[in-house]
Design a binder for these strands. Structure first.
Lengths: 196, 196
DNA sequence: AAATAACACTAACAATCGTTAGGGCAAAAG
DNA sequence: CTTTTGCCCTAACGATTGTTAGTGTTATTT
């Protein structure tokens, strides 16, 4: 068939992961086969194994690449000296942006992490739990400061994250508003729902 | 192994569907096998086929049972003569309640419908699109009435539905607030985010 | 009690799955 | 140019998948 074509300085493994994210998003991790992936990449299924160890490796590369990006952002954000409500807005915008511009991998990380194999599964779940707790802490701080209405912070976090994952529908819709408009609308509703 | 036990006036097929919803929720439709399902039901895999036609039938029974319930509710709601904002709140509460009390089937319908086979897939997608449009129309009415702030109605719908599907996290969490508290918190944030 | 229908079993099927082995060719290094 | 390395191929493996055929057993009806 010919070699896997790489752009710039991306490795062949990177190319495979990128295509895998698209495929996993479309069909789901379990339903996507290595033969389909090979087709998309332009190679025979067996050839993929010159670059990767297993199908599962693809999934955890995707999941942890996303998780690391978000953890890093949160780290920075916590150190900033702005109001709690601004921190929330800032983080929401980051998530919305991620969902708009790195759609496939974020989507896969969100929806298919259950299929991770141990020890990655436990690791991922722990990171996820911790991330949400830290976000909840920001909201609780905002409640204490009377910037945010008195609500259950855990529930607020749940709403925020899942609302954002709904950008999936925006991607699928034919006639869609621009990414920027989407972002402003989401912020208006979500941040508006938190304000006193 | 012995016969499938049925409660009350539920058919054996109903029992299978019920167990299938639980299994599909836990492992995903593709990852769940008929042999696993048979185990849960307490029977050999082949015996399931005395009651159902295929694995796919199970999925579309689940999906359309949920879809029909929501369509019926919307029908009634549209006829009610209350304010737009109240209609929105009413529908949100219905969805929250569904997610709390009929968790497995609603979750499966929400997340696994992609695996429906034709013509059920197209049918389901059409119903879904139509449902969302009708919900968006209610919101747009509310905007015209100046009950609801000026936002993109489609985006609002997207946020609402996906926020509600986040109740999945609530089910998984160890120390959770009550269903009623959850509902009130969600309404506070979501309806609060719409109000002018 | 006899006949019928409903249901569960064992065994097996064809298809598809992820993955490995081993060989050949092209690019890179010497 | 020669050697080595990287990459892709074909072929095949063992496991698992959904499902069917055929037979026996239990419950229901006559």
């Amino acid at each position: 068939m010919g070699r896997i074509k790489t752009d710039n300085n991306a490795s062949r493994k990177d190319v495979i992961i990128e295509k895998a994210a698209i495929l996993f998003k479309e069909k789901g991790f379990k339903a996507a086969s290595m033969r389909e992936l090979a087709d998309v990449v332009g190679v025979e299924a067996a050839s993929l194994y010159n670059h990767i160890k297993s199908k599962n490796e693809l999934l955890h590369e995707i999941c942890f690449s996303v998780a690391n990006r978000y953890n890093q952002k949160l780290e920075l954000l916590e150190a900033e000296s702005v109001s709690s409500l601004q921190k929330v807005e800032n983080l929401l915008r980051f998530h919305i942006d991620g969902m708009v511009h790195h759609f496939e991998e974020v989507f896969v990380s969100d929806r298919e992490w259950k299929h991770l194999s141990e020890p990655y599964l436990s690791n991922f779940q722990n990171q996820r739990r911790s991330y949400r707790k830290r976000f909840a802490a920001i909201i609780e701080e905002g409640i204490k400061n009377k910037e945010i209405k008195k609500i259950d912070a855990t529930t607020a976090v749940l709403i925020m994250f899942h609302a954002i994952s709904g950008i999936e529908s925006w991607h699928r819709s034919k006639q869609k508003i621009s990414g920027k408009e989407l972002e402003e609308n989401m912020i208006a509703i979500l941040v508006g729902g938190l304000k006193k």
